[in-house]
Design a protein around this nucleic acid. Structure first.
Ligand code: MN
Ligand code: MN
Ligand code: MN
Ligand code: MN
Lengths: 156, 156
DNA sequence: CTCCCATTGTAGCCATAGCTACAATTTGTC
DNA sequence: GACAAATTGTAGCTATGGCTACAATGGGAG
């Protein structure tokens, strides 16, 4: 009986990603990173202070208000948030959903790092970068490790 | 007895990173990401084929040879590798050291993901992005989880 | 020795994320 | 209400990592 390809043909093994596909996914992850961090920050600041201004974001990320302004223009065009000239920043429904997902994933990554014994300050730093590269499949393993139930979320 | 600041003053708690410091570190991590992936790829291709050409890198990352060419120019200027015009790419001593460290960290991250139950193809993808945000402290926890001894490495 | 093809280089473009300098607007305080 | 401070916008710059198009180089096959 020889069904699969080589040794122990137990589970169906997917067709082995090429390096091209791997780096393409990393590039896609990076392309979403700023959007995720910004909607997350807006949600957090709104929750804390009622409203979020561009200046709040500039302080939060420690970048110039010009950098914030340009990024907000892009995220507005992408339908994640809205803001009248000189007005405060608000999340759209799409932006709110992205913020919720990002927040949850961020928290899970942070708690996971703490659970494996990483000190709190290191965990906060590393989680901020790692989060954007954690797929749904890996997130489920993190949650399983934390002894919780994986919630019925979406794709990659 | 009231020594620390608040509840259970056991370990010395570091002064709590601000969001500004956290995002600064993530930006530093991103600034090193391309260099790390490139020296790692050069080392791998040299190990496999004896020499590494720009075209090999273009195939590896699935980008144009122009993108490779510009990045190689920068990494040459940074002293990580060297190459005569129309010649193959070679790592400098500095580049070789960076490649070794990156390879080890990459492998550790990959094996860690596999160890917590992430499927192999997902692990390969996620590790490629996560690796650049894993500090020495977190890497030690990964190694500890894998039941190995943390090697005497350097800083962050 | 040619000629072809793979490889590399160059010119010039785009998008993103940074910045400084300066202008305009809003807001808050007398 | 006027004025100062904070905030936002705009102009114009850099660096990085993408791209297409086209030119130059170099190694083999004949
Ligand atoms: Mn986040
Ligand atoms: Mn983040
Ligand atoms: Mn790598
Ligand atoms: Mn990588």
């Amino acid at each position: 009986m020889q069904s699969g390809s080589q040794k122990t043909p137990r589970k169906k093994s997917p067709p082995a990603r090429t390096s091209q596909e791997i780096f393409a996914q990393v590039r896609r992850d990076h392309a979403m990173e700023t959007a995720e961090d910004y909607v997350e920050a807006v949600a957090k600041i709104v929750a804390q202070q009622g409203t979020c201004r561009g200046a709040d974001l500039a302080r939060h990320f420690d970048v110039s208000h010009v950098t914030v302004s340009k990024i907000l223009t892009r995220l507005k065009a992408e339908g994640l948030l809205r803001a009248r000239p000189y007005g405060p920043v608000e999340l759209t429904d799409t932006g709110t959903r992205l913020a919720s997902m990002s927040q949850q994933r961020h928290e899970t990554v942070l708690h996971f790092l703490l659970a494996i014994g990483v000190d709190k300050e290191t965990a906060r730093i590393d989680a901020e970068g790692i989060e954007h590269h954690v797929s749904q499949a890996t997130l489920k393993r993190f949650l399983a490790f934390l002894g919780q139930q994986p919630p019925p979320t979406s794709s990659r």
